[in-house]
Design a protein around this nucleic acid. Sequence first.
DNA 1: AACAATCTCAACCGCTTAAGT
DNA 2: TACTTAAGCGGTTGAGATTGT
Length: 255
Amino acid sequence: MGCKKCEPIKPKYRKGLWSPEEDQRLRDCVLRHGHGCWSSVPAKAGLQRNGKSCRLRWINYLRPGLKRGVFTVEEEEIILSLHALLGNKWSQIAMHLPGRTDNEIKNHWNSYLKKKTLKMGETIEPKCYYSPSLSSTPEAQETSPPPSYEFSTIEWFKPLDAAKTAPEVNSGETLKTSLPKLLFSEWLQNCDGQSFMGSLETDRVGAIGNSQFSSEKGFSAQLETEIELVGGQLFDLLSQDEIFSNFSTSVDFAY
DNA sequence: AACAATCTCAACCGCTTAAGT
DNA sequence: TACTTAAGCGGTTGAGATTGT
C-alpha cells in the first residue's frame, strides 16, 4: 500500500456507451490527424476516454466502410466455413468479411450461429479450400480436403503454395502472412458512400489493376500516401486497416 | 398490461505479443 | 537482457430491446 499523496493521479476515464458528440469528436480527430498513437487520441480529441476505448470505438463503429445490419446467408457460410477451420480466430475470420468487425462476427456467432450448428448436430463442411497451414491443428490439417478449392459465389484464394512462391512486388517488401490478402472495393468508400474502386479495370477475378494502381508501381506504395477522393476528402488508407498495407497485386485479390 | 426470460450488441477486461529503450 | 509501453485479440459482461406467458 503506497502513500496516496505520492501515488500518481489516475485520470478519470469515462466509461459506457458513447454519445453522438463523443463519436463526432473522435471521428473528426482521427480523420484529421490519423490515430497515430491511440493513447494520445483522447487528449487530441478532447475526450475523457482512454486510448484503448477510442481505438475500439473507431474499429468497431466509426471506421469508414463498415457494413451494418443483418448478416447475409453468404456471410454466414463464410463464417461457418472459416470457423470450422480456424476456430475462434475472430480477427482472422473478419479479414475475409469486408466491412465486418471481429466483434460483430463474434457476437453473431455466440448469439446465433453457434446454436444453429449445435442444432444441426453436425460439423459444417467447409465449402472452400484453404491451405493446410491455415488449419489450427495437425488433426485439422490431416483432414483438409485435397488441393482444389471452391466457394459458392466468390473465388477465394489461389492455392497457398502459389501465394508462397509468388514474386514480391517491391524490393524489400515482405508479406506479413503467407495468405493472400483480400481487398474489397466497399472498404474504400468515402463518406458519401462512393467507391473510387468501382471504375477500375479488372486483371483477375474482379481484381484491381488500372493505371492508378499498376502492378509495376506496386499497390502498397500507393497506399502509403493519402489519396484524394471525390469531394476533396483525404482518405488515409493505412489508418483504415492493416490489411491494406503491403498489398500486392501479384499475390492478393481485390473485389 | 405486467412481468420474466431471452436475445443482441456495444463495451470492458485481462492476457499476449511486438516494439522501443 | 530486462523492462516498459502500446496494440491486438478473445472472452465476458451488462444494458436495452424483444419475445413469450
